[in-house]
């Protein structure tokens, strides 16, 4: 097994004395797609926010490439659940190209070229000049994913990204994400309450229970989903 690119060690978090996360420990490897499943409100989003360094844990450690990670970084891109995470004043293509241009990852021309390619893959080629306000929830999520992918992150954190996306588009996006993993070695951590989706996309499934996580086998997973 290759060395873990991302490790969470004994992460704990409480809100108002209510324990949300207790000693959460797991690791992510290069090109690995992992799903976190669990009931609504069990702390999955909180865990992702901590992994993205948007919130601090009460205790525990995060390691990225073996080094402590304490601040947000473009190497770990977080796509939130909120459909309105796009910048409303930028068109679709500008939204996607923006992070690459602003962080000087690509030149303007290259950024727009790559943005166009990603949007074509997302079936959004006709909508490049539209504004987020003019898109459906599912389309906005696909744009958000394209915006994340242009950064070619080492870790991609997805918080229930496919809620409003139709099945056909979802399949396409899965395909793109899998390709990204293979091409760039991106590791993906996908939070979902949709068990079938977890099974379709991820190789490993982390089951969220009693404020902590455990990696479960297929048999256990099938038992859970009632197969």
């Amino acid at each position: 097994m290759s060395k873990a690119v991302f490790e969470a060690i004994d992460i704990c978090k409480s809100f108002d004395e209510r324990k949300i996360l207790k000693d959460v420990t797991f690791s992510l490897h290069k090109s690995e797609i992992m799903a976190i499943v669990g009931k609504s409100g069990c702390g999955k989003t909180t865990l992702l926010r901590i992994l993205a360094n948007l919130e601090l844990p009460d205790s525990g450690e995060l390691l990225f490439d073996g080094q402590p990670q304490k601040n947000p970084t473009p190497n770990i891109i977080f796509i939130q659940q909120d459909y309105n995470q796009l910048l409303p004043w930028k068109s679709v293509i500008n939204n996607v190209a923006y992070p690459a241009i602003a962080t000087k990852k690509y030149s303007k021309e290259d950024a727009f070229r790559r943005a166009k390619e990603l949007l074509e893959k997302m079936d959004l080629a006709e909508f490049v000049d539209y504004y987020p306000r003019e898109l459906s929830g599912g389309m906005k999520q696909r744009v958000a994913i394209a915006r994340a992918l242009i950064m070619e992150p080492k870790i991609l954190l997805l918080d229930e990204p496919f809620g409003a996306v139709d099945r056909e588009s979802r399949e396409k996006v899965y395909g793109i994400i899998k390709k990204l993993c293979n091409e760039y070695g991106t590791a993906v951590l996908l939070v979902t309450h949709n068990l079938q989706e977890a099974k379709n996309v991820a190789k490993k499934i982390i089951y969220f229970e009693a404020n902590t996580v455990k990696i479960i086998t297929s048999a256990e997973f099938n038992k859970i989903i009632g197969v």
């Binding site: 948007l54 947000p72 970084t73 473009p74 939130q80 909120d82 309105n84 995470q85 602003a102």
Partner: peptide, 18 residues
């Protein structure tokens, strides 16, 4: 200001001017 915009800026380490 929606927190989500600031978090997006934090996530990609956007400089202050941008």
């Amino acid at each position: 200001l929606p927190k989500i915009y600031q978090e997006f800026a934090d996530n990609i380490n956007l400089d202050l001017k941008s």
